[in-house]
Amino acid sequence: MGKVSNIMIEFNNVSKRYPSGQEALTQVSFELDTGEMAFLTGHSGAGKSTLLKLIALIERPSQGQVIVNQHNLVRLTKQQAPWLRRCMGIIFQDPHLLMDRSVFDNVALPLRIVGYRQSEIGRRVRAALDKVNLLHKEKTFPDALSCGEQQRVGIARAVVHKPNILLADEPTGNLDPQLSSEIMDLFEQFNQVGVTVLIASHDLGLIAAKKHRILTLQQGRLTSWGA
């Protein structure tokens, strides 16, 4: 598979102004290579979530271009958004699990959406649960799990379909330092097998311990994008 470009995520002078008039991002430009891992940091309200939402096509930029996996998102229609989202895994601070389904069914959801066979679903879901050390909880319902376990189920769901990109918005926000560190290790493991990872976090202590690029947002402007 000959690569035309080595860039997975590219922002060109992107600004985002919400209908309320609030300017969340101003003239943001950066590139993230395929297989790279980076952190996105800044105070709350600095525009971290907005930036991730632009990548996942949950929001659209008011100005500038966002290019993800060689697709110019400006040109993608609303109907094409699901196809884009299938090549990424998204992890939230609140893992957004469906409480009326077992852990297994929660993790299987992305595969069911794409239309995998039942046997294949079983194999992949167990592999993903094994990765986050929750294989023994596959029949449990989410409300019987601890915060950390719920977050790990959310991660298993985000990676079960082997996405190219992993986006995480404050994934360790509710967790103690020990668990946070374990989860960061997990992200690094995914990164090592070639997944592009972008993690928004304000936990500077945790980020500094890792040797990855840090993008810093201040009031909607990218103030640093070095290592």
Partner: peptide, 16 residues
């Protein structure tokens, strides 16, 4: 509603 939005976030079409 919550479930519908989660499904859309992980790549579900309206059809699904």
């Amino acid at each position: 509603r919550q479930e519908i939005i989660v499904c859309k976030l992980i790549g579900a079409h309206n059809r699904f």
